[in-house]
Structure formats: structure tokens, C-alpha cells
Amino acid sequence: MSEQMDGASRASTNGNEPLLVVKNLKKYFPIKGGAILDRTVDYVRAVDDVSFTVRAGETLGLVGESGSGKTTTGYCVLQLLKPTEGSVRFAGKELTTMSRGDMRAVRRDMQIVFQDPYASLNPRMTVGDIVSEPLLVHKIGNRKSRRSSAERLLEVVGFNPDFINRYPHEFSGGQRQRIGIARALALNPSLIVCDEPVSALDISIQAQILNLLKDLQNEFGLAYLFVAHDLAVVRTMSDRIAVMNSGKIVEEGPAERVYTNPTDPYTQALLAAVPIPNPRRMQERRAERRKHKDVLAEPV
């Protein structure tokens, strides 16, 4: 419980403002063209006027298919990509206009877990170096204390700290993902953007990682922006859901409501398209899908 309090105190916002407030966020990528000089001929509207909030300690699931702009949204929140327009307020501070130095300080409070456990860890660094890097970057503690912090962090995420001097390639996908989570946790952040954290993992490992993320949320009062394409995974993790399609949020609301009573046609079609592990309902699901034929029409 005290950790919950801790979470609240870290992210001290003015009054009742949620931890993260995203307003009218846009991210356009220029399409270059022209015969001789690179001219911008058009834009890809990857994120097109998106607004949402995440409160301290809760999970917002951001669900959508490939190309929906969900990952770009996550990167814009963390200022890993510069938004074209719009506002990102975190813990009461506007991030889009912030200086590099101030932003560096804010980064202690917001972290990210990536999809691919193979690409997200530097192959030339040991597990211990990877997990203590956040502390080193922010000059927390000395070499020895950072080392012991790394060991405890690894233990917290269920990774045997005896392997602290090994390299990431020596571990399986699930174990690597635990290392990535330990790194994200190291600075005691109040928000973690989880970008498809389990989509590269097998089912049995996926369950381990999802449970771990839930436990960490309870213990450390973390807020998650949980970005994923798998509707079932998002449902498991999220208090509220935002459904993205072609750069826009088409539906947003409490998870229970969005899944049981979706109002947007795209959300309805998306839910109908999910294969359900129950062969008895095969016919019923097919019929349901036929109703959404127009929305489910494939791009050619």
C-alpha cells in the first residue's frame, strides 16, 4: 500500500489532472518526392488528432492493427519522436516545448518496454550493465550500490541475479523481456509505455510476463500505456481501452464497456474478427463476421 502512496507522490500533479494528458496529438511523416531535389509531396498521417489521458496507477490499453499509429503515439508520448502538433502533459508539465535538459530529468519518471526482446538489449553489454545503465545515466549511487540495485531489480522481475555478468543472447525471449522490464523499472518511474511487450513470446511465456507486469503495477503503483494489437492481451491488462484505426482513436472507454458493448463499427468488426478458442462457437462467429463484411474488407 505504501508503494501506492509512493506512486502518487512521485507524480505530483496540480490538483486533479491525470498523470498523462495527451491532447490533439498529431504526427505526420513527410513523403519525399520530386525529380531532382527532395521535396515533400505529401504526408503520412501516422497519428492524426489523438487525445487521451492516463491516471496514476491505471492502465490504458491502446489497441489497433499494424499501421494504426499506436506505436508512433507511444513514441510521441515519450518524446522519442517529435510530435508535429498537439500537447503532451506529463505530471503537470508540458513535454513538447521542454528543453533537452529538463526532458532528461522527466525521463526518470517515464520509461518504455519494447516488443522485440532481441533488439531491445545491446548485445555487447552484460545484463548487469544494461539494468544499471539508467542509474549510471542519471548518476544515482556509486558503482557498488548500482550493482546491488541491479541485482535486486533482476530478482524483482524474476530473473536469477547470478547471471548478472552474462550477455543477453544467452537467454530466451521471456528472460530477455524480464531484463528489459528491470531496466524500465530501475528509475522508479510512474509511467511505463509497454509497446507490444508480449507479442514476440510464446503463450506460456506471455502469461508469465503479463502476470509480472500486473504484479509490478500493484507493487509500485505504475501506470501503463499498454500498446498492443492483440485484443485479448489488452483486455487482460487494461482498465480503459482506446481503439486506434488509421491514426485516429475511434472508440475509447472502460475496458468492460468497450468489449461487451462496442459502439464504433470498426471496434465491432475487430472484436468479431478475433478467433475465439472455442470451436462450438465457430458458426456463430462466422455469422457475426459476415455482418461486418464492409468494415472487414481487406485492403487490396
Binding site: G174, A207, L210, A232, R235, T236, E256
Partner: peptide, 21 residues
């Protein structure tokens, strides 16, 4: 271990995980 799309108490519950690999 499969996350479910339909059902009650999904958010609060834990998935059954198979230990090890």
C-alpha cells in the same frame, strides 16, 4: 494461459502461467 476477450473479472485476475520454459 490464454488471455480472454470475453468474460468477467479479466482485469483483476491473473493468467495461469506455466513455469519454466
Amino acid at each position: 494461459a490464454l488471455p480472454q476477450v470475453e468474460g468477467e473479472g479479466i482485469r483483476e485476475g491473473r493468467l495461469r502461467s506455466i513455469s519454466g520454459r
